[in-house]
Structures are given as structure tokens and as C-alpha cells.
């Protein structure tokens, strides 16, 4: 039983990573139908910029973290204005290829600077480790899970209640109609991309705070889980991503714990394929909808 609970606790931390990358990805997918392969790379960019500013340039943890998050937002903004906006919105293939190119570019550019190595990351704060009736957990994990809940629920409520959130949902449902009611669809899309990038950046810092390492190609593995969570939850569903992400993290942790690591990725994939067969719009999906 202790083992079981321990796996659940570890799984929550893993699931938080999935949630933090997926909510941004699913938001952008929902608002503009864009499969942004480069999304998970922003997570990596934030951590490396944090590393560079905090450690190599000796600006300290706080400035490093701010720089990391800002860098993720900036790269997101550049991605939107310099790449996505220059491509005909109806050319889905071109859009995809462009984000694929951006992803390849970012990964290899960063990799060049760190000689293609995995780097150690300093913690954001000194984590305390607790040992309660044989259950191990750290303040880093608590902060990670707590922040994930706050960010995901916050985003979901913001979409529901704020004016910009409502406009975003309108654009997500029907871009043509949104233009007829004079919504600045481009502005809304830009906000969605930048917001998603910033959330990915925050996610990167929080997760690196518990794993204490990062490598330039981490996005390849993160993307798989991100796609699986987004598809199972239903594309565009932020609430769904929260539930499914945490759940997948816990299930994976339990599977690895009891059956071995070769089964880790099978769970996410299996869930995704079953959901696609039974309910193609996803568990929480109502066609393309954000909220």
C-alpha cells in the first residue's frame, strides 16, 4: 500500500509536466487548428535560458527564471508573427512543416551551444524532503503539483469569465463568424500562442526544479505524452487536459513501478488509440472548443 501511494505521488509530479505542456498546446490547437510541433521545445528553451542567465552569467535564480519565462514568450511571439502569420492559414501542411522546422532549428541551435549534452540544472529553491510514514516527497514536488493546479484551473476560468477568454472561445469555435462580429482574430491567436508559450516556459522551470536536468531534445519525448493527453482529453479542452494529464502520470508511474519501464509509453498510446476508435472527439471534447 505504501508503494502504491508512493507511485501515485510520483505520478502526480510526472502528470503535472504533462498538464503544463498540454494546456498550452491544446489551447493553440483549439483556437487556430495549429499542430504546433515546436510547442514542447519552448519548455526546453526556457530551462536553457534560465541556466545560462542564472548560472553562466551569474544573474541569480530569480532573474534567470524571469528571463527563461520571457524567452519562451518571446520565441512564441516570434513563431507567431514571423512564421505562422506568413503562411496561408488554409495550408495545414505548410503550417505543420513550418513548426517542424522551427522545432528542429531550436533544438539543434541550443544543442550546439551545449555540445549536444544533457545539462544539470540548479534548483529554483532548496527543496525540503519529507518522509511521512515511509512516503517520500519534496517541497519541489508540492510546488509543482500546486502550481499546475493553479495554472490549469486559472486558465480554464479565465477562458470562461474574462472578455478576452470569451473572444478566444468564439474564435476557436468559428473563425469566420468571429470576424463578422469584428473580433480581431489575429490578435486573439497571438495572445493564445504567447500565453501557451509562457505556460510551457513556467512548466519547464518547475519540472527542471524536480528533475534537475535538461537536454536539448527533451521535447521529442515530452511531445508524445503531450499529443496523447491532448487527443485523449479532446483537442481544445483545458479542463480535460488537466484531468487526463494527471491521470496518465499516475497510471504510468504505477505501471512502471509494478510491471517495468518497457510498458511506460504503451499506456498513453493505447489510451489514445482506444479513445480515437470509440470517441474520436476525445473524452472531454465537443469538436473544436476551448474551455
Amino acid at each position: 500500500m505504501t508503494y502504491f501511494t508512493q507511485f501515485l505521488i510520483d505520478g502526480l509530479a510526472i502528470g503535472s509536466l504533462y498538464v503544463l505542456v498540454t494546456i498550452g498546446f491544446t489551447l493553440v490547437f483549439g483556437v487556430m487548428g495549429l499542430l504546433n510541433v515546436a510547442h514542447a521545445d519552448l519548455y526546453m528553451v526556457a530551462v536553457f535560458v534560465f541556466l545560462g542567465v542564472a548560472q553562466d552569467l551569474h544573474f541569480g535564480i530569480v532573474l534567470g527564471a524571469i528571463a527563461g519565462i520571457a524567452a519562451a514568450g518571446l520565441v512564441g511571439a516570434l513563431l507567431f508573427w514571423q512564421v505562422i502569420r506568413r503562411i496561408d492559414r488554409n495550408r495545414t501542411l505548410s503550417m505543420f512543416v513550418a513548426t517542424l522546422g522551427v522545432s528542429y532549428f531550436l533544438e539543434n541551435l541550443v544543442a550546439k551551444f551545449v555540445q549536444f549534452r544533457t545539462e544539470a540544472v540548479p534548483p529554483l529553491f532548496q527543496s525540503k524532503f519529507y518522509d511521512v510514514s515511509n512516503l517520500h516527497f519534496s517541497t519541489g514536488q508540492i510546488v509543482l503539483v500546486g502550481s499546475t493546479l493553479i495554472i490549469a484551473v486559472g486558465l480554464s476560468q479565465w477562458l470562461r469569465r474574462s472578455n478576452t477568454g470569451k473572444l478566444m472561445r468564439a474564435v476557436s469555435e468559428n473563425t469566420h463568424l468571429a470576424e463578422l462580429v469584428a473580433i480581431d482574430t489575429v490578435r486573439i491567436m497571438a495572445i493564445a500562442v504567447i500565453l501557451a508559450s509562457v505556460i510551457a516556459g513556467i512548466g519547464g522551470l518547475l519540472v527542471a526544479n524536480t528533475t534537475l536536468s535538461v537536454n536539448p531534445f527533451v521535447a521529442n519525448d515530452v511531445s508524445l505524452k503531450m499529443f496523447a493527453v491532448a487527443v485523449v482529453a479532446g483537442v481544445g479542452s483545458v479542463d480535460g487536459a488537466l484531468v487526463v494529464g494527471l491521470f496518465l502520470g499516475m497510471i504510468e508511474s504505477l505501471t512502471v513501478g509494478y510491471f517495468g519501464s518497457q510498458w511506460e509509453t504503451v499506456i498513453g498510446l493505447g489510451a489514445m488509440i482506444i479513445v480515437l476508435l470509440v470517441r474520436p472527439q476525445g473524452l472531454f471534447g465537443k469538436r473544436l472548443r476551448v474551455g
Binding site: 472578455n163 470569451k166 472561445r169 468564439a170 469555435e173 463578422l180 462580429v181 469538436r287 472548443r289
Partner: peptide, 24 residues
């Protein structure tokens, strides 16, 4: 323009649809 067919945001509530008009 009141478009042809159902020119409403179906996944949003009635009030939210009206609020979009009010914003403009």
C-alpha cells in the same frame, strides 16, 4: 452582417453570444 444559416456561437451560452455583440 447577420449571416445565412445559424450565425451563433453554438458552444457558448446565449448570454455570452449577446455579450460579444455588446463588446462591439
Amino acid at each position: 452582417l447577420v449571416p445565412e444559416g445559424r450565425g451563433v456561437f453554438t458552444t457558448m451560452t446565449v448570454r455570452e453570444n449577446l455579450e460579444l455583440g455588446l463588446l462591439i
